[in-house]
Structure formats: C-alpha cells, structure tokens
Nucleic acid binder design. Structure first.
Lengths: 225, 225
DNA sequence: TGATTGTCTTTCGTCTACAGTCTACGGCGC
DNA sequence: GCGCCGTAGACTGTAGACGAAAGACAATCA
C-alpha cells in the first residue's frame, strides 16, 4: 500500500504550473482590481503578452474570460478595454448581491450544523480582533471569508458561483469605500450567526438583507462626496 | 447631406460576418442544447474546427466561453467535455431561477408602464393561440419572450444577464420535460400581468415564485418516471 | 477655409507549426 | 496467465506569422 509508506499530506500534488491562461487571467484580474489598470484603458494584447513573458494566445483567452465575467469590454476589431463602472451598474450589482446573499442566509439557516456555526464564530472573533487592531486589509479579507462560509453552508453551488462573481465586482467598486464601515459590520455579523444557529430562516434573511443594504447605502453616501 | 439622398432604411448596415468566435460559440451552443452533442461527450478541437470550416483558434475561444458559462467542462491537458447535468444541479438552478425571476417580477411591478403591459398582453395572446394550436415550439419560445420582457421591465441589466444565463441552462435540462405544462402556465402569466399592471409588488413576487416553483415541481415529478 | 480622400500605422483576427502531456495498447518478465 | 513497463498515437498548450480592418493624419480640391 502506497499511502502507508508516506506521511499524510507529504505529496503536494507536484505543483504543476497549470494552464498559462489561468495564471494570466489571475494576473490581469489582480491588475484590474488593484487599479493598476484603470477603467477605460485600452489593453493591447501584444503589450500584455510581452509584459507577462508569454505569447498573445494565453492573453487572448484570459481576456475572453474576463469579458464574459464583465471585467473588460471586448470591442470587435478594436480590442479590450477595462470596463468602466457606472453609478447605475454599481447600484444594480449591489441590489443583486443583496438578493443572493439574503437567499444564502436563508438556506444556511436551514442547513447549518454546529460545526458550521463554530467556523463562523471563529471568523467573527478574528474579524473583531482585526478591527480592534485597525488592520483594515485583514478585516476586509475576513469579511469576504465570512460571507463565503455562509454561501458554503447554504449548499447551493450554482448560487455560490453567481454570488462569487457578483461579489468580486462589487468589491472592485466598493473597496475604496469599505475601509470605514468596519466595526458595525461585525456587530451585524454576530446577530446573523445567532439567527442561523437558531435556524430562524426569516430572521437570517432579514438581517442579511439589512446588512447588505447598509453597505449599499454607505456606497451611495460616499459617492456623493 | 447624405441622409437626404438615401431612402430611410436602405442601408442595412452591411451585415458584417462578425467575429468568428461568436458564430462558433452560437453554433456549438445550438449543438449542445439540441442534444446533437450529448452530455459527457469529448469535444475534440480539431474535429470541430474541421467540421465548422475554421481553424482551431476560434473554436478554443468559443470553448473557453462555454466553459465559464457552465456548458462544457474544460479538463486541463485533456480537452473539453459537454457538461453532464446532475439532479442536484438542476434543482439548484431552478431554485436560483425562482429567486431571480421573482425579484424581476417585483421590480417590474414597480416600474412597468402601460406600453410594457401592452407588450406583455400581446405575448400572452400569442401564447394562448400557440397552446390552442398545439404548437409547442412556438409556445416555448413565447414563454421565454414573456419572461425576458419582464426582465426588461425590471430595468436591472445585471439581474437580466444573470437570469439569461441561468435560464438557458434551465431550459436545457427542462425542455424535454416542459412540453406538457402548456396551458396552466399561461393562465398564471395572465394573473401576473394583472399584478404588475396594478403595481402590486408583493403579489407579483408571490405569483412569479409560485409559477417557477410549479415548473420545478413538474421537473421533479417527471424525473422520477 | 472646409470637407474629402488617400495613405499609413497600429492592432486585431485567423492560420499554421511545434512542443508537452495524457491515454491506450502491445511486449516482456515473473 | 498476470502484471508492469515501454512505446506509439492523439490531443492539447503555446508560439510565431500573415492578412485585414479600424483610426489618424496629411494632402488635395472645391
């Protein structure tokens, strides 16, 4: 028996580079979300290819994918341009996010077991620590993990995939704004955990809806300044 | 002035072939949804390319897009395989569809003007005719148009795009089943128009939820036979 | 002076070719 | 006879090259 002769996870599955297109995709997504590539900017394939040290082909495939996910606009015979978010679109995205997250909360309240609750509480504790320490980046990351875990508990893969897409784009628009709404957010998270633990679907839905609506309002409040 | 010297719509904007990848995409989607390519089947790039009379490149890009939209699974270094739908996934898709459509109905009830209502009623009339004439294909197409119009009236482009994706996949799973649930569906549509015309958001939401839940149940009832 | 047209550059869209990897099959040893 | 290894085939992943369309700019003519 092979497994007996090896320590548990000693075989790291031989880190293979993986398809280039995926790495290019991730690299570009990183560049876009960090605003290194600004909205409206023209992305020249050969430039990107040269810059990343690959040929144009993987770049094209990555751009294709970014296009279908709404990150770039692919104008025929003209090239790729970083998508320019509008106020209206941001609002629509936040609306859809509210919808998806609220449903996830409802399903999670129906499905969650004690193990899941414990994970949520662990994230909550870390989140509160991060806020206390003014570690904004960690707090933001933990916020994402919190919502992702609720998605996980909801047990609907299709819903999770849609929400993940929407969420990343929301965060793109929203990140410059989110840095302020720290502590209040985690207080709301705490209530939500209680509702889920109590299997109170209605309450969990309502709390999540209010929670995401808060972020929506704070987005609008900010954008007017 | 140029426009004066030419009849109104005499310039058909020179129907350009459009990017090959898009046409390949549509061709493949057609082949998949019509079951000409069966779930699980291995799609060989060079074969498809030869069959469609293009090179591998556009085929690859089309497969990329189909992959991100969930139609094919792209296994690294192995190729593309038509996605195999599972019972669980179909159920999740139908759940999400219910969610999205219900929200659309709510928004439509808030936004709809008399022009929109008229369009809905026109589609309804055509739909009832098609059902009377046992023209199932037309009825199915009109059903799609009905839901699309409600999406349109909802005025949320993000929601519409997500729903369109989900809807096509739902229809893929569901089409073999849907051929029976003809008349009842249009009766429900009629009630929904009334609710939207009355700007009754709650009722419209509830009706749409029940409506899509009906199709979900009929899917399950069928799948057990 | 203004519009129009011709040319030129840039960039995309597509094709062909080559290298890497996975799968299947046949031979070899036990 | 059974299992392992090596080899061959097929397919994907990537690179490089060519043709074509779109936009910019300057020259020409009314």
């Amino acid at each position: 028996m092979l497994s007996a002769g090896l320590p548990q996870g000693a075989v790291p599955r031989l880190e293979r580079p993986g398809p280039l297109r995926d790495r290019v995709y991730e690299a570009l997504l990183e560049l876009i979300t960090t605003r290194a590539l600004q909205p409206g900017q023209h992305l020249v394939e050969s430039e990107l290819a040269g810059h990343l040290g690959v040929s144009r082909q993987p770049v094209r495939e990555a751009l294709q994918r970014l296009n279908t996910e709404g990150w770039v606009d692919l104008r025929p015979a003209q090239g790729a341009f970083v998508h320019e978010p509008t106020e209206e679109e941001a609002d629509q995205l936040l609306t859809v996010r509210t919808l998806l997250e609220a449903e996830a909360a409802r399903l999670a309240a129906g499905n969650a077991d004690s193990a899941g609750i414990e994970v949520l509480e662990a994230i909550l504790a870390e989140g509160l620590n991060a806020v206390d320490a003014d570690d904004v980046d960690t707090a933001v990351a933990l916020n994402a993990r919190f919502h992702a875990k609720i998605m996980d508990l909801a047990g609907n893969a299709v819903l999770a995939e849609l929400a993940a897409q929407v969420d990343r784009r929301v965060r793109w628009y929203y990140t410059p704004v989110a840095r302020q709404r720290g502590e209040q957010s985690w207080v709301e998270h705490r209530e939500m955990i209680a509702a889920i633990a109590a299997h109170d679907e209605q309450l969990a839905t309502r709390l999540m809806r209010e929670h995401t609506e808060h972020t929506r309002r704070s987005y609008h409040a900010r954008s007017k300044s």
